[in-house]
Simulated scan of single mutants.
Amino acid sequence: MNGNGSSRLEGAVVAVAGAAGPAGRAALLRLAEAGATVVASDADTERLAEAVDAARYAHGGATVTGDTVNLLDLDATRAWAEQTEKEFGRIDGLVHLVGGWRGSATFAETELADWQFLEKLLIRTVQHTSLAFHEPLKRSDRGRFVLVSQSGATKPTEGNAAYAAAKAAAEAWTLALADSFRKAGGEEGPKAAAVILVLKALVHDAMRAERPNAKFAGFTDVTELAEAIAGVWDRPAGEANGQRLWLTPKP
Rank of each mutant, 00 (worst) to 15 (best):
N2G: 11
N2W: 12
S7D: 04
G11I: 01
V13S: 01
A15L: 05
A15Y: 00
V16N: 03
A17T: 00
G18C: 02
A19R: 01
G21T: 02
A23T: 11
A26L: 06
L29C: 08
A32W: 04
A34M: 02
G35K: 00
V39L: 09
V39F: 03
V39A: 13
V39E: 04
D42K: 01
A43Y: 02
A43C: 11
T45A: 15
E46V: 13
L48Q: 10
A49E: 14
A49N: 14
D53L: 13
A54C: 07
A55T: 05
Y57C: 13
A58M: 02
H59K: 05
H59I: 03
G61E: 12
A62N: 02
T65P: 04
T65W: 01
N70G: 13
R78K: 10
W80D: 01
T84P: 08
F88H: 08
G89N: 11
G93E: 07
G93D: 07
G93H: 01
V98F: 06
G99L: 03
A105G: 14
F107H: 06
E109G: 14
A113G: 15
D114N: 09
F117W: 15
E119R: 10
L121V: 10
I123Q: 02
I123F: 00
Q127P: 02
Q127I: 11
H128C: 08
T129F: 01
E135D: 15
E135C: 08
K138I: 11
R142T: 14
G143D: 13
R144V: 07
F145G: 13
F145A: 11
V146T: 11
S151I: 12
S151P: 04
S151Q: 14
G152V: 05
A153Y: 02
P156Q: 03
T157S: 15
E158K: 00
A161L: 13
A164Y: 01
A166G: 00
A168F: 15
E171W: 04
D179H: 15
S180T: 09
F181A: 10
A184N: 05
A184H: 04
A184P: 03
G185D: 15
E187W: 00
E187A: 04
P190D: 13
A192W: 03
A193L: 13
A194I: 08
V195T: 09
I196D: 05
I196C: 06
L197Q: 04
L197P: 03
L199S: 09
K200L: 13
K200S: 15
L202C: 09
D205Y: 13
D205W: 10
A209W: 09
A209I: 03
E210S: 13
N213F: 15
K215F: 14
E224Y: 08
E224C: 10
L225H: 00
A226P: 06
A230D: 10
W233V: 08
A237T: 08
E239D: 15
N241K: 09
N241H: 07
N241R: 13
N241A: 13
R244L: 10
R244M: 14
L245C: 09
L247G: 05
L247A: 03
K250T: 06
